[in-house]
Amino acid sequence: MAEHDGGDFVREMMQWHFSPETGSPFWLKRAQTLDFDPLTDVRDFEDLGLFPNVVDELRDVAVRDLIPLGHGDAHAAGVYESGGTTGEPKRVMFTAEWHRSSVEWFSDRLDEHGVPRNVDWLSAVPTGPHNVGAMAVDTAALRGGLNFALDLDPRWVKKLIADGRMDMAGAYTDHLIEQIGFILSSQDVGVLFATPPMLERLARHDDLVELVNRKVRTIIWGGTHLDADTRDLLRDEVFPQTRLVGGYGSTMMLGTSVERPGLGDDEPCVFDSFAPYTTFQVVDPETRQAVPYGERGQIVVHHLSRTALLVNNLERDFATRIAPPTDRFGDSVADVAPVASFSGETVIEGVY
Rank of each mutant, 00 (worst) to 15 (best):
S250G: 04
R30L: 14
V115K: 02
H225L: 09
P20S: 05
P20Q: 06
V92S: 06
F45L: 12
N147D: 00
V245F: 10
R117M: 06
G83C: 08
R235P: 02
T22S: 10
L208S: 11
A290K: 03
V245G: 08
R217F: 10
R217L: 09
V238C: 05
S123G: 15
I183M: 09
E97I: 03
E200F: 00
A76R: 15
D73K: 14
D265I: 11
Q298W: 07
V311P: 12
D138E: 07
R316L: 05
V79G: 01
W105N: 11
I177E: 06
T139M: 14
H205G: 00
S273A: 15
A275K: 03
P261K: 02
A149C: 07
R316P: 03
R117V: 09
V351N: 04
D41I: 10
T224G: 08
E315L: 10
R165A: 13
H225W: 10
W105L: 14
R235S: 15
T40P: 02
V339D: 11
Q179M: 10
H17Y: 12
F182I: 06
G294C: 07
D60Q: 14
V300L: 14
R306C: 10
V258P: 00
G181A: 02
E104A: 15
L39A: 02
L69S: 07
S19C: 05
T242N: 05
A134T: 09
G128K: 05
L142M: 09
D73G: 12
H75C: 12
G78K: 09
H303N: 02
E21M: 02
V283F: 05
A77T: 13
D5K: 12
D272Q: 01
W27N: 02
E97D: 11
G294K: 01
Q241W: 00
G255K: 12
V291T: 07
T40C: 05
K215C: 00
A124S: 13
L176P: 02
I299G: 07
T95V: 11
S186Y: 05
V347S: 01
R109D: 01
H303T: 13
R109P: 04
L263G: 11
F318G: 11
P196H: 02
S101F: 15
V301I: 15
H175D: 02
D111M: 09
V212C: 00
G247F: 04
F148H: 06
H99K: 10
D174A: 15
P325F: 12
L58V: 03
L244E: 13
L202D: 08
D174R: 15
V283C: 05
R288H: 11
W16D: 04
A141V: 04
D174F: 12
E286L: 14
M135L: 15
G70W: 06
R155F: 06
R214C: 00
G344I: 08
Q15D: 13
A290Q: 08
V63E: 11
D265E: 04
L233W: 15
R165D: 13
H130W: 07
R59K: 03
T326Q: 07
P285T: 05
P89E: 10
R214N: 05
H302G: 09
P276E: 00
D8I: 01
